[in-house]
């Protein structure tokens, strides 16, 4: 009767957000008097797996099949269903990211299990199994009760605080009978944009809007992002005008971000844009129009022309970094 949590890893190490998932699972296991089994699909050094004990994992079920180092939703599902059956698990936890979103609904559908996609809270067990999630792209939150016996949850990364403890997880090999169909998808090519921080998981984001006046002015925004170690993003009009690639578009019809810090430069703050960013913990708005609605959603505001303020801010960050090495 353990809580199962799918752990993601890349290039030999576990992703930080998966540690959040393990810890989330641990919290539920403690409340329900069970233990946590972390599922590691693919190959990973043993010490990395053992260290999941520091976040409360009791054991790691590993399927050391190198094919699983890449996402194969059907194979992942088969493995998770095997683990769930073996462990008699009623609760399965993944991340609300590209991988989790391909796998969790499939697992939930197979098990006729209720799914909360994008959990923002621990389950409230007093009222059933109630979890808070964002709806209408962040314009509201819903408290969703899972009524089925088996429950599947995907977590929004960067939401739950990590507390590293002591402990070492035991490692068990999980035997899974894969079929050929489980690997029906062939990965032809992978293009990672080197040095760029993935937007969805970024803790710091610098985002530009029409106030930057043209694609030729993005250099000064990238300078700030580089100095901060931040990902870059943009508003819809900017993506529509092809000033920036579409994957940078955040808002109701683009990506959703929840960083610790979102710096909006020259973005007026239409309701559609706010929907994609209002999960950010801190918002800085730089805009020359003091009436820009974004200021109402901001923690810090600077009224000024983006092209003048940005270099000054970059300079200030540089100075700060030098003093805080």
């Amino acid at each position: 009767m353990s809580v199962i949590v799918l752990v993601e890893h890349t290039e030999g190490s576990i992703k930080k957000k998966s540690l959040e998932a393990v810890q989330y699972a641990t919290s539920i296991a403690q409340k329900t008097g069970t233990t946590v089994s972390a599922i590691v699909l693919g190959t990973l050094p043993n010490d990395e797996m053992e260290n999941l004990g520091q976040y409360g994992a009791h054991k790691v079920l590993n399927v050391p099949d190198a094919r699983l180092n890449e996402l194969h939703p059907r194979a992942y599902t088969t493995a998770l269903l095997t683990a769930a059956q073996q462990e008699a698990s009623k609760i399965i936890i993944m991340l609300h990211d590209i991988n989790g979103r391909a796998v969790a609904p499939r697992v939930a559908g197979k098990l006729k299990a209720g799914l909360v996609a994008g959990a923002l809270s621990y389950p409230d067990l007093d009222k059933g199994f109630v979890i808070k999630k964002a709806v209408f792209s962040g314009k509201a939150f819903a408290h969703v009760n899972i009524t089925s016996d088996v429950k599947v949850i995907t977590l929004i990364p960067n939401t739950f605080q990590l507390n590293k403890g002591e402990g070492k997880a035991s490692i068990e090999k999980l035997d899974v009978n894969f079929s050929d169909n489980d690997f029906g998808i062939t990965v032809k090519e992978v293009n990672k944009i080197k040095g760029e921080i993935p937007l969805a998981d970024a803790q710091l984001v610098v985002s530009g809007g029409r106030g930057l006046k043209g694609p030729e002015n993005w250099g000064i925004l990238e300078d700030l992002a580089k100095e901060l170690g931040a990902a870059t993003a943009c508003s819809r009009p900017v993506a529509d005008a092809h000033w920036r690639p579409h994957h940078e578009h955040v808002g109701q019809t683009g990506g959703t971000v929840r960083p610790d810090l979102y710096i909006a430069v020259g973005i007026s703050g239409a309701i559609q844009h706010l929907a994609g960013v209002n999960g950010s913990k801190n918002i800085v708005v730089i805009n020359k129009d003091p009436e820009a609605p974004f200021f109402k959603a901001a923690n810090y505001g600077v009224v000024g022309d983006a092209l003048e303020v940005l270099p000054k801010l970059t300079e200030a960050v540089k100075k700060f970094r030098q003093n805080h090495k």
Binding site: K132, G138, H143, V144, Y300, V302, D305
Partner: peptide, 28 residues
């Protein structure tokens, strides 16, 4: 297999701090 028990709206941001454009050290 799920039900929505309640909704809530995001809390209003508590007041903004305005920083002069010439004082980015303060913002940092």
């Amino acid at each position: 297999v799920t039900e929505i028990l309640a909704y809530e709206l995001p809390p209003a941001k508590a007041g903004i701090k305005l920083i002069e454009a010439d004082n980015m050290d303060e913002l940092v």
